[in-house]
Amino acid sequence: MIKPQTIKVFLCLMIFTILSCEKKASNKVDLTHEDGNQKITIELENGQQYLEYEKPTKTNFVLKNIEPNNFAVVGVGIKILGGNDGTLKTEINVPKGYLENDTLNIKVRYGKENKNHEFYIPIKSTE
């Protein structure tokens, strides 16, 4: 016979799993980070909210109230193309089979205080 405590634990895990899946499915990719009057927006040239494996995508990091000299970006497949007027132009090309999951983690550091933030962008296969 199954103990009532076991059933309660199982039901709690099921509810948590269902709610987690619903939250992930309904979440829109957050390509903007704001901290006070400072703002970073990622603009993907493909117009989507995802990248594709092995497909170079021009990407702009638009900075508001952040000096370009006080901004750094790190992530797999990111190539810096240049920048002007508060926009850092990059190209992102993620090799297939390199990441453990289909999400690119982009880390940024900005401001004189060296604040940090991470963006998570989904990646899809073109197959």
Rank of each mutant, 00 (worst) to 15 (best):
E113T: 14
I15N: 02
G83A: 01
K39I: 09
H33T: 04
S125N: 14
T59V: 15
K112S: 15
N60F: 05
E54V: 06
E43D: 11
K58D: 10
P68S: 08
V62P: 05
P95L: 02
E91F: 03
K79I: 09
I66D: 01
N114Y: 11
G82V: 04
T90Q: 02
E43P: 00
K64T: 15
I78S: 08
L31C: 05
H117P: 07
V94C: 06
N60W: 07
T6G: 09
A25Q: 13
S125Q: 14
K115Q: 13
L13V: 01
L99A: 01
K124L: 13
T59L: 10
E91G: 04
D30M: 10
G36V: 08
G111T: 02
K8C: 08
Q38S: 09
D30R: 14
D102A: 06
I42D: 00
G75L: 03
K28S: 13
T57D: 13
K96D: 10
F119Y: 00
N46A: 01
V76R: 14
K79A: 11
V9G: 00
K55H: 08
Q5D: 13
N37W: 07
I78A: 07
T6W: 06
L63R: 04
E67L: 12
Y98T: 15
S125P: 04
L104F: 03
Q5Y: 09
E43M: 12
G97Q: 00
E22L: 14
N93Y: 09
N69E: 15
H117A: 06
F71H: 02
L99G: 01
P122W: 03
L88V: 15
V9E: 14
E54C: 08
Q38V: 03
I7M: 12
K89F: 12
K107M: 10
T126C: 07
L31G: 05
E52W: 06
Y53L: 10
K28P: 01
F10G: 05
K23I: 10
V29G: 02
G47I: 06
K64P: 07
T57H: 10
N46D: 06
I66A: 01
G36T: 06
N65L: 09
P95Q: 03
F16C: 02
Y98R: 13
K58V: 12
N84V: 08
N116Q: 11
T57S: 14
L44D: 04
M14W: 05
S20V: 01
I40P: 04
K79G: 09
E67R: 13
L88N: 06
V76W: 05
G77T: 00
V108N: 00
N60G: 10
T6Q: 13
L19A: 08
N69F: 09
L99V: 06
P122Y: 06
I106E: 04
F10W: 11
G77P: 00
N84G: 13
E34V: 13
E100L: 12
I106Y: 01
E67Q: 15
Q48W: 02
R109A: 13
E67D: 15
L51S: 01
I121M: 00
V76Y: 08
